[in-house]
Amino acid sequence: MAGKTLDFVGATGRAALRFAATVGEWGVLMQDTIRGLRAVRIWGGLVFEQMMRIGVASVPIALFIAAFTGIVLALQASYTFTGAVPVYLVGSLVGKTMIIELGPVLTGLALAGRVGASIAAELGTMRVTEQIDALETMAYDPAAYLVLPRVLAGAVMFPAVTLLASTLGIVAGWLTAIQLLEMSTPEFVRGLEAFFVPFDVVFSVIKSFSFGLTVTSLGCFFGFRTRGGAAGVGRAATSAVVASSMVILVFDAFWAAVLL
């Protein structure tokens, strides 16, 4: 009994140390990435390409998710708001929820699956095929060449994609309200305006910016530490998605606690 307890405590300690070591390795990578900012010659020409792959290419899936989220929000709001609750609050709920919560979070989660896994798999493949080692051998800063363009692209494009997704979600909610819920446009707009403050947009941008940094940096990190061939690449992609999703949700709560 005492031996099993000791084993459990030991396992917990090992997990904590492993987590701390992982965070430390991520920190070192981020330090190298920040240091690579000086090598504009290396990453400058790669950022737009990464923006295209991370941001522009993700717009359709982000808009698809946001549109149906807006529809569902409007329908569920009308289902919930009965009796004394005025119907214009459907607009309030759709607008507020899409801007400050579901727009950034769902876009972040969707792009964590698409972008994070893609980056981890790409860099993991480069790692197991020793391409990253070759870059280091050629005195090419892999952080500046591989990580920095992706992180910058994620940091810039996540907010842009999120804003578009939130807007389309609100439009989808409005169309649902006037077509399926017998609401008028003025009613929906009244609810939309009632609780809107410009800080909601700023809050959404801050959240999605942090999500972009998280997804791309963790994708790069797990890709960089890939071991064990093709299976390791798969594990790296999975780890990147899982870790990115968890951190997104943690950041979601963090920003809500700090900024709201």
Partner: peptide, 21 residues
């Protein structure tokens, strides 16, 4: 394409905010 997405998102955010205000 990147420029279009970024500018569009900025325009939507700014114009939408002003409109809602």
């Amino acid at each position: 394409w990147v420029g279009v997405v970024i500018l569009l998102s900025v325009v939507v955010a700014v114009a939408g905010s002003f409109w809602l205000r």
